[in-house]
């Protein structure tokens, strides 16, 4: 990843409130936040919205240690989605604390990061 791209991403992470608000003002309804760890060691954040019966989204990639602005004060419905991302991926949302699903010391930390979950999980016969 080049510095230029990183620069762009850092601004995207700050920009998120603006873009989120833009979607809401256009009459869209927030569905959910999808986080994904890409092969190149970045997080991809996808904010999905319902726009008149179709799924619309805006997405951006950020470095793993990048802090992202929280939108929970604009829209309380996004709070759980952000806490989930903090818990399962360790995405750093400003002012959002972990501990939604996992128990500290007992569960593996940030289990959905690549190679973290341990165990095979969900082993189904056949």
């Amino acid at each position: 990843m080049t510095t230029e791209e990183t620069q762009l991403d850092r601004s995207a992470a700050v920009d998120v409130r603006q873009r989120f608000k833009g979607f809401l003002d256009a009459g869209s309804r927030f569905i959910g936040l999808v986080v994904r760890e890409s092969e190149d060691g970045t997080f991809e954040l996808i904010y999905a919205f319902d726009q008149g019966g179709k799924v619309a989204d805006f997405r951006f990639s950020i470095p793993l240690d990048q802090e992202v602005d929280s939108v929970a004060d604009l829209y309380p419905g996004a709070m759980t989605a952000e806490r989930e991302a903090v818990d399962l991926f360790g995405v750093r949302f400003k002012g959002v604390r972990p501990g939604l699903f996992l128990v500290e010391g007992k569960s593996p930390a940030e289990p959905l990061r690549k190679g973290r979950a341990g165990g095979k999980g969900g082993d189904v016969p056949g």
Binding site: L88, L100, L102, S107, A117, G121, G122
Partner: peptide
């Protein structure tokens, strides 16, 4: 979180 089993990981395997 009492019921968190880790389905998203398990389903992706």
């Amino acid at each position: 979180g009492y019921n968190h089993r880790g389905m998203e990981h398990a389903l992706s395997l």
